[in-house]
Simulated assay, not measured.
Amino acid sequence: MGNMMKQMKKMEKQMAEEQKVMEAKSFDGVSPDELVKVTFSGKRQMTDMTIDPQAIDPDDPDMLSDLVLAAVNDALTKIDEEGQQTLGKYTNKLSGM
């Protein structure tokens, strides 16, 4: 029982360290044709957005909205995938205990 508690504490410490590393990373998302680019921190906060002037069509404002949504969703998907790869190994171990 004591050995299992030591393993749990060690795993918690490793998981916290990897979480900090992930939160310090930047994740870029792009829309189709890369007309909109966004950057998020690992804490899921947008830190930057670049919009190509070609994406700004006064006759079609919905297109720009769609491009921004696509770029944001791309970045958030990358954060989720990284989280699964980095932290998923701990949740898999915990569910097996």
Rank of each mutant, 00 (worst) to 15 (best):
Q45W: 04
I51Y: 07
I79Y: 03
K89E: 00
P61S: 02
V36N: 04
T77H: 11
Q84S: 12
V30F: 12
M63T: 04
A24H: 06
E17N: 01
D33A: 13
K6I: 09
V72T: 08
F27R: 04
Q19C: 07
E81D: 12
P61T: 07
E81V: 12
D52S: 04
A55L: 05
M11W: 08
K93T: 04
M22H: 01
A75W: 01
T50R: 15
T91S: 14
M22F: 04
A55F: 04
K20W: 07
D57T: 13
Q7N: 14
P53C: 07
E23N: 06
D66F: 07
E34P: 07
K89F: 02
V21G: 00
G29F: 06
D28Y: 12
S26R: 13
K78Q: 11
Q19A: 06
A70I: 01
S95Y: 00
S41H: 03
K89L: 06
G83T: 09
M8I: 15
P61Q: 06
S95I: 02
D62Q: 15
M46E: 03
K93C: 00
R44T: 02
M4C: 04
E12L: 11
E34G: 11
G2D: 15
G29H: 09
M49L: 14
Y90C: 01
M46K: 06
D33W: 05
A70S: 12
M8S: 06
E81N: 12
R44L: 09
R44N: 08
L69T: 15
P58L: 09
D80Q: 03
S41G: 10
K6H: 13
D60N: 15
E81R: 11
K93Y: 03
M15D: 07
D80P: 00
Q19R: 13
Q14L: 11
V68S: 02
E81M: 08
Q45T: 09
T39H: 08
L76P: 02
M22G: 01
Y90L: 03
R44D: 07
M46S: 02
M63G: 05
A55G: 05
D80T: 04
E23D: 10
D62H: 12
R44K: 14
D52V: 02
L69V: 12
S65K: 14
E18K: 06
M11N: 03
T91N: 14
K10A: 11
M49W: 07
S31Q: 06
M97I: 12
K93D: 11
M22D: 00
P32S: 13
G88D: 00
L67Y: 02
P61A: 05
T39C: 10
M22A: 02
K89Q: 10
S65G: 15
L87V: 08
D60W: 02
D33Q: 13
M15P: 01
K78C: 00
V36T: 07
Q84K: 15
M63E: 10
D48W: 05
N73V: 06
Q7P: 11
T86I: 12
F40M: 04
V30Y: 13
A55Q: 09
K37E: 13
K6A: 14
